[in-house]
Amino acid sequence: MNKRQEQKERTREHLIQVAFEQFSENGLTSTKTADIAAAAQVSHGTVFSHFPTREVLLETVIEDVGSKIAKRMHELAEKSCGMKEMLEAHLKGIAEYEDFYIRLISEASLLDRVSKNTLIMIQSAISFHLIQVAEQGMKRKQIKQIPLPFLFNTWLGLIHYYLMNKELFAPKESVISVYGAEWIDYFMNLISLEEGGNE
């Protein structure tokens, strides 16, 4: 890769990072490309030379965040970790991008079709790994025989409820840092066949 290509790639990565920050702070649907250009200290045209539309930039940011959350879960699933470790990895992944993730789930119905599909693909990857670990726990008789979609949707519903109501539960703090351990304990007690709910 020559210097010009390296510079172009650095600018692209910088725009993704600044867009992530702007979307997190101001919302996915209300942030304009002009806001991102100003925050990145580049011309408005520079944004469009890397991303043909605002929607493509948003899709790129969603995909980037989602792949980072799913990557750690994938690594753990390959090591045959337990359900508790998988839930911890899921929350840790979200916690790194908490403000953006809250915007994403809160504004999902307002996104274009491609961004919605990107979010669905992210949730599907997370679901796959959680279900994989749950099936292993069921075989070992550590987890109750619960319909797998219900198990995943119960977990997601629990954390999404708190995240979408951040102002109610933890207005000045990370919701995950305040409640994450409690969610995991509650969920493990709900699904576990073992005393104390730890797998």
Rank of each mutant, 00 (worst) to 15 (best):
L110G: 02
E88A: 14
S109E: 14
F128C: 00
R113S: 09
I122Y: 02
H74N: 11
I122A: 04
S124Y: 02
F100K: 05
M121Q: 10
E59S: 10
K92H: 15
A134T: 14
K71F: 09
G45K: 10
E98F: 06
F100S: 05
Q142Y: 00
E21H: 01
F100N: 06
K92G: 14
L91Y: 12
K166Q: 13
A37K: 02
Y161M: 11
L104Q: 06
T33V: 15
L151C: 03
A89M: 08
D112W: 04
S24W: 07
F48E: 05
M164A: 07
S124K: 14
M86W: 09
T31R: 05
V56G: 05
L148H: 07
Q41A: 06
I146Y: 02
K84M: 01
L119C: 11
S109I: 03
A40G: 05
S115T: 02
L28A: 08
H129P: 07
E85L: 05
E85F: 13
I126H: 02
L110K: 13
T33H: 04
S43C: 00
A39M: 07
I69H: 03
E167C: 04
I102C: 07
I131Y: 08
D64R: 15
A34P: 03
V114A: 15
I36L: 00
Y162S: 12
S127A: 06
D35Q: 09
Q142S: 03
L156Y: 14
L76W: 08
K144M: 10
K92Q: 15
E55T: 13
H160M: 11
Y97T: 07
L156M: 11
I143G: 12
I62N: 10
Y161N: 13
G93H: 10
T53S: 15
S24N: 02
E107M: 07
A77C: 10
W155L: 11
G137L: 13
E25H: 03
M138P: 01
D64H: 14
Q136R: 15
Q41C: 02
S106N: 14
E21Q: 13
H129V: 01
K68G: 08
M86A: 02
S106M: 07
L110M: 12
K71N: 11
D112H: 12
L104W: 03
T118F: 04
E135G: 01
M83G: 07
S124P: 00
Q41P: 00
K79N: 06
I146V: 12
M73V: 08
F51T: 12
F152C: 01
S109Y: 13
A95E: 15
E55Q: 15
A70K: 02
H129A: 06
T60V: 05
K166A: 09
T46S: 12
F100W: 10
H160T: 05
T53H: 09
A125H: 09
H74P: 01
